[in-house]
Design a protein around this nucleic acid. Structure first.
Lengths: 221, 221
DNA sequence: ACGCTTCCGTGCGTTAGCGTACAAAGTGCC
DNA sequence: GGCACTTTGTACGCTAACGCACGGAAGCGT
């Protein structure tokens, strides 16, 4: 039963007309991503773009001194490696696997060719890029104006939206890294949420109990 | 002498091959922008894209409660209204004129047609969009990790890069609005810079005296 | 059962930036 | 010159988040 791993679980691939998809299909290579994998190293040349199906990837912006911040999250609704078709083969950001799972990748040249043929794929990718821009803007303003509590809620929801279950495998340390804050800060905020009965976590395993409760706490972002 | 107002002062237009440019030229409409003008209201439908020549435009992300943050700055090197050709006719961000000057605008439909003809303009716009993404990422990480002092330096330099002179017309109040911080905070930071002899300002008129000094203080962003 | 490592809790003092309030200085208008 | 308005300076208490340091607890291997 390979249906469990259909590339068309990715929404962009699913939105392609059948013939276009058949065209691309031979170039799709399945990869299993494990937590912490780095798909794109900041500044390095990229060879593939990735279409996540049941995995989640975080886009981080890393600075010279090692500090970093998550600028966007990509799941089955998107694609990792935008800059390949946007022009310029490097990005200033790093892409880290935030939730283990599967993705399908295609060679950079293939996606470029498809993109510049100006078919339906192009429109899809452009619209997704636009959505990504929006997400980044939200992140920026949220970083500026909202409390860590709210940002944590937002982060949990962003992840939850891209997950089939309500369980995240993720230590507080890692979350802190993504958000660009202290680990202790996450401990504290997560403690509040746990006390409020919204989540329960245990050694790198976070279960969301009350999604609506989280939504009530989160900012509009 | 209309050379002072040549659309090709905009770098994107300047990079077009002559025939492509001649194609577009009849649709270019000159507009004079004054400080504080709003080119794009968050959520509203856009009718034009703008190519600034000697004006500067700030892209702000505004929230429901009125708080806002600048997410990018656009000058002669770019274009305002990306989402028109990226798909989706609205943006979540607002575009405010930060420095008065001239820009050339074209109707949304025209730029779309040109874009989807997949000529040289398309590549230029895509690459610029990629650059914008990078700028936004930098802004996000800078918001998170750097002091107001550094952010102010960065902001001054970003503006300076897009200006023919070393004088900015901009009150501290407005800067604070852009950066999404308190006015008093800007007063304080600006005071430090003034004491250090890097800038001098006076009632909405900031003169940069020592650009290298600013660069020494700013973060890598 | 033992030790090791990872993960989480907690408790300091410190600091950057916020909110508020008000004073001073420059500008323009009559 | 007088008056209203804008812009900038300053002060004070407050809070969120930081940096650091430690202690405990859960899991893992042997």
């Amino acid at each position: 039963m390979t249906l469990q791993h259909d590339p068309r679980q990715n929404h962009l691939l699913a939105a392609l007309p059948r013939d276009e998809y058949e065209n691309l299909a031979p170039h799709l290579e399945r990869v299993d991503l494990t937590l912490g994998d780095s798909l794109v190293e900041s500044g390095k040349v990229m060879r593939h773009v990735y279409f996540p199906t049941d995995s989640i990837v975080s886009l981080l912006c890393v600075m010279e001194d090692g500090d970093s911040t998550e600028i966007a999250v990509v799941g089955a609704e998107g694609i990792v490696g935008i800059s390949l078709f946007m022009g310029g083969e490097t990005t200033p950001s790093r892409a880290i696997v935030q939730s283990a799972g599967t993705a399908y990748r295609v060679k950079g040249q293939v996606i470029k060719d498809e993109f510049y043929r100006a078919g339906p794929l192009q429109g899809l990718l452009l619209r997704y890029t636009q959505a990504l821009l929006t997400q980044m803007a939200q992140t920026a303003v949220c970083n500026r104006h909202h409390s860590l509590d709210q940002q944590l809620c937002r982060w949990l929801l962003l992840s939850l939206d891209r997950l089939p279950t309500n369980e995240l495998i993720m230590t507080q340390e890692l979350i802190a890294n993504m958000l660009g804050v202290r680990r202790e800060g996450v401990t504290e905020s997560a403690g509040k949420l746990q006390k409020a009965g919204l989540i329960s976590y245990h050694r790198g395993r976070i279960t969301v109990l009350d999604r609506l409760g989280l939504e009530a706490r989160v900012c509009e972002c």
